[in-house]
Computed example of a mutant assay.
Amino acid sequence: MSELSASLDAPFIHPLADVQSPHIGAGTRVWQFVVVLAGARIGRGGNVCSHCFIENDVRIGDRVTVKSGVQLWDGLTVEDDVFIGPNVTFSNDRHPRSGHRDFVREDTVIERGASIGAGAVILPGVRIGAGAMVGAGAVVTRDVRAGLTVVGNPARTLPCSPQPEGT
């Protein structure tokens, strides 16, 4: 393998990022002021914009975009081709208390090809289905079925949202 092809396969990690994980896929870009803890796994061809935090037990697929100001907490799985807009908020504890380390973690899954608009809030334990769209500022309190578009607080399906087959 030539030196040029080796560099094309390597992830780009900005010198001002703190990436402790060795599991960053080829072609992924991690920008300045991003923190990635040692146990996190990030796939190939992704883009993690500045000022993001990725905790240990986070799995991110291939070609995922994470825009600025997003924190990804333990128990989050993000499948391939997902878009996470700026300042999207995730949580993994339904009843947070200061100093409480023995909370019941609720895992969240964002399925392949879903998009989450800027400033949306995703409560713990939900599943956002493949190809679903979460509107900017929506508060997702329950599962979103594949292919649907949800907006508002709490998030509700748009009346014109296409219904997946078999529903």
Rank of each mutant, 00 (worst) to 15 (best):
L37K: 11
P22E: 15
L8N: 09
A38G: 06
A38P: 00
G45E: 11
G39M: 09
N56D: 15
L37C: 12
R29Y: 09
D62S: 07
F53H: 13
Q32V: 01
R29D: 10
G46A: 05
D18S: 14
E55A: 07
I60W: 02
V19D: 10
D9L: 13
V19C: 09
G43T: 08
H23V: 05
G61N: 03
H23R: 11
N56V: 01
H14K: 05
C52M: 01
F33L: 08
G27L: 08
R59V: 06
T28L: 07
Q32L: 02
N47V: 00
V58G: 03
E55V: 00
S21R: 10
A38C: 04
V30S: 13
C52V: 01
V58Q: 04
P22T: 08
A38V: 10
T28F: 13
H51I: 00
W31A: 11
G25W: 14
H14G: 10
S50E: 09
H23C: 05
A40C: 04
L8H: 11
I24E: 06
V36K: 01
I54Y: 00
A10V: 11
I60F: 01
H51W: 00
P11N: 14
L16K: 15
D57F: 00
D62Q: 07
G25H: 14
I24G: 04
C52W: 01
V64N: 06
A38L: 05
P11D: 12
I13D: 03
V30W: 12
A17R: 08
V48K: 02
I42C: 03
L16H: 14
D57E: 13
I42M: 03
G43Y: 05
R59C: 03
G46Y: 08
G45A: 08
H14T: 07
R63W: 05
S21Q: 10
R63K: 13
L37S: 07
D9K: 15
L8W: 12
R44P: 01
A40T: 06
F12H: 14
V34M: 10
F53E: 04
R59Y: 05
A38T: 13
C49D: 12
D9R: 15
R41V: 05
P15W: 10
